[in-house]
Design a protein around this nucleic acid. Structure first.
Lengths: 336, 336
DNA sequence: TTGTACGCGTTATCAC
DNA sequence: GTGATAACGCGTACAA
C-alpha cells in the first residue's frame, strides 16, 4: 500500500493525498475527508525511507553512551533514567530513538567512528563526554546537530546542553557538612575528565576554602564507581576526616562500606554526602544524604531541546540549567 | 557528496561505483581501486534512506521494552544488560538499534500502536511479553519479523525466541533447598502473566511435589520487584516456612528485609534463593544464592538470531535455550 | 484548490 | 566488466 493507492481509492491525485498527510491547508474539506477515511481503513503509514530521502529528515534522534562498564549496568541507574526521559520527549514529538552503546572496553575512537558513520539520525544526544573526546570533537568540527546532558569540556559557548549547577550543588552539600559542625571534610571526586566531576570539586574546594577548612590531602581524585569510593576511603581514614563528600552516590556507598569495615560509625564518626540521589541512596543503612536532580527531566529536556533546535524553533547554542536539591538523610544525622 | 560524484571523480559510472560499495564481483581491479580511493578521501557514506528505499532493508532492529516502572531503572539491571548484549551483536553485523521504551504507566495498547506504526526497523526484539500482549499479537498476526527474549506466552511453535530453561533451573534451586534439609519451602513467584514466572513456578511445584513437600499455602503469586518480596514474605512468616525460593533476585532482597525485620535469621531460620544473579545479589548480607544466567548473552543471541532470520541464514521459527547455573552463597549457608 | 512533473540517492536490470 | 535507465515512495514547485 503506497500513497498512490490511497489517492486512487480516494479519487484524488497523489499530491492531494500527500497534502492531507502533511496537514497542508490547501485541501478541500471534502477531499480531506475522503483521504483520511481511506488512510484509516487501510491503516496506511507513509514509507519513512522515501520520506526521509526527500525531506532530509528521519525524525530519529541518536543517543550515544560511550562508557558502559560499571556505569550503564551495575548499581547505577543514571543512564536508564536518562533514556526514559529522552523516550518521553521523543514520543511526544513523534520521533524515534536510536541507541548507540559502546562495547565493554571499546576505545572512544572506534565508538565515535561507528556513531558518526551511520547517518540515520537527524541529531545526537551526547553523554559522558570527556576532554578531547573524539566524538565530541567531530560533532563540533563538522557542525553536526547535537546536544549534551552535561556541561561540555570545551567550546561551551557554541554547544547546546542541559546541565545542573554542579558548582552550586556541591557548595550546598559542603555547607551542610560545615553547618553540622564538621571540621575535616574530605572529598572523593567523580571522574575529573568529565566536567561534572570537575565542577563538583570546584564547588567543594571553594566552600571549604571560604570556611578555612581546605586540606588538599583530603581530596582524592576518583571515579563514579563503588570500588573507588571504597578504596579511596580506606586511604582517607588514617587522615582522620570527620566527613566526606563524594562526587557520586555509588562512590559514597563504597565509602560507607570502608568506614564500617574500619569499625567507625556513620554519621557519628564520619558523615557522608553523595551526589545524584540514585535509588541506592535510600537502600543502604544509614540512608544517604545527597544532591537530588531529576535525571529523567534532564533527558526529556535534552531531547526536546535537540528537536526544537532541529526544527528551528530554538536558536543554537542554547543552555538549560536544571534545579538540584539537598536531601538530608541519616548519613549526616538526618532522619532515615 | 553522493554516489554520482564519487563515480565522476573515479571516472566510472554510478553503477560501477555502486558495485564497488556492495562488493559485487564484476568490477575490474583497476576500477575498484580508483573508486575505493575516492571514497576514502571523501569519507563517503551512502545515503541510508535512499538505500533503504530500494533494498527494503534499513539495517535497523527495534527493541521494545513495554514496562519500565520499577524494572528498567530501580534496582534491576536486567534491561541494561540485555541492551548491552544486543548492542554488541548489532554492532558486529553493522546494524543499528532503535529503542522503544514505554512511558511510566502507559497502557500496552498505546505502546504497541506506537511501536508498530513506525516502520523503520527490519525486525523487532520483544521483551516482557505478557499473555494477550497487543504488540505480540499484532506481530504474530501480521507476520512481522521478531524474536523474543523469553518463552512466548502463546504460539510457541511459530515464534522465534531465546530463553533459558526456567523449569529446570527452578527445579535445581528447589532441590538445593531440599538437599540442605529444608522441609517447609515457600515460593514467592515472579509475574505470572509472563512465561518466565509461570515456568519457574512449575519447576518449583514439580520438585517439592516429588519430595512430598508441596504446601499450596506457601506459594505466593508476586512480581519481580522488591516491594512484593517484602510484603509477601511478611504474609508467609506466620506460616513458618524454613526456606523461600523467589522468582527474582529483587523480590528475594525484599523477602530478606522482611525476615530480618521479623527478628529471624538468614539462612538459619529461613534460607533464601533468588533468580537472575543480578548485581545486587552479592551486595546484600548475606549474599544471595541464586540462578545465574548471562543476560548479555541472551541479548546478543537474540539480536544475532533476528538478523540471521532477516538475512535468511536461519529458518523461522528457531529457538535457543541458554544455560543456567546455581550459585550457592550465604543465604543458603554457602560461603559469602 | 487540484494535478502534473520533477527530484531525492540508491540499487537492480538490462543491453552492450 | 561496464554503463544507461528504470524503479523505490514520497514531497513540492509550478501550472492549471
Amino acid at each position: 500500500m503506497k500513497l498512490e493507492d490511497i489517492a486512487k481509492k480516494a479519487k484524488v491525485s497523489r499530491s492531494t493525498a500527500s497534502r492531507v498527510i502533511n496537514n497542508d491547508r490547501y485541501v478541500s474539506a471534502d477531499a480531506r475527508q475522503r483521504v483520511l477515511k481511506v488512510i484509516e481503513q487501510e491503516q496506511f503509514e507513509p514509507n519513512p525511507a522515501a520520506r526521509t530521502l526527500v525531506t532530509r529528515r528521519s525524525n530519529i534522534i541518536g543517543v550515544a553512551i560511550p562508557q558502559t562498564a560499571n556505569v550503564f549496568f551495575g548499581d547505577n541507574s543514571y543512564y536508564p533514567m536518562l533514556l526514559q526521559g529522552i523516550a518521553e520527549a521523543v514520543n511526544k514529538s513523534d520521533h524515534a530513538m536510536l541507541l548507540w552503546l559502546a562495547e565493554s572496553h571499546e576505545v572512544r575512537d572506534v565508538f565515535a567512528k561507528r556513531v558518526v558513520r551511520h547517518r540515520q539520525p537527524d541529531g545526537l544526544i551526547l553523554t559522558s563526554v570527556v576532554d578531547r573526546d573524539p566524538l565530541f570533537e567531530y560533532m563540533v568540527k563538522h557542525n553536526r546537530s547535537f546536544v549534551m546532558v552535561e556541561t561540555p569540556p570545551a567550546y561551551a559557548d557554541r554547544v547546546s546542553y542541559v546541565t545542573i549547577d554542579n558548582v552550586g550543588a556541591a557548595a550546598e552539600a559542603t555547607r551542610h557538612l560545615i553547618q553540622i559542625g564538621r571540621k575535616r571534610i574530605a572529598h572523593i571526586t567523580g571522574q575529573l575528565t568529565i566536567q561534572d566531576g570537575i565542577d563538583r570539586l570546584k564547588g567543594f574546594r571553594q566552600t571549604v576554602a571560604e570556611a578555612g577548612l581546605l586540606y588538599e590531602e583530603l581530596i582524592k581524585p576518583g571515579m563514579f564507581a563503588a570500588e573507588f569510593g571504597y578504596r579511596l576511603m580506606q586511604e582517607l581514614i588514617p587522615l582522620r576526616p570527620d566527613a566526606v563528600f563524594c562526587g557520586g552516590d555509588t562512590a559514597a556507598i563504597g565509602a560507607i562500606r570502608a568506614i564500617h569495615e574500619a569499625g567507625l560509625r556513620v554519621p557519628d564518626d564520619i558523615a557522608v554526602v553523595g551526589f545524584d540521589d540514585l535509588d541506592v541512596a535510600t537502600k543502604i543503612t544509614p540512608a544517604l544524604t545527597t544532591i537530588r536532580h531529576r535525571v529523567m527531566d534532564i533527558g526529556s529536556t535534552a531531547a526536546r531541546l535537540l528537536i526544537d533546535l532541529l526544527d528551528g524553533r530554538l536558536e543554537h547554542p542554547h543552555h538549560f540549567v536544571m534545579p538540584t536539591e539537598l536531601v538530608i538523610r541519616g548519613s549526616t544525622g538526618g532522619q532515615g
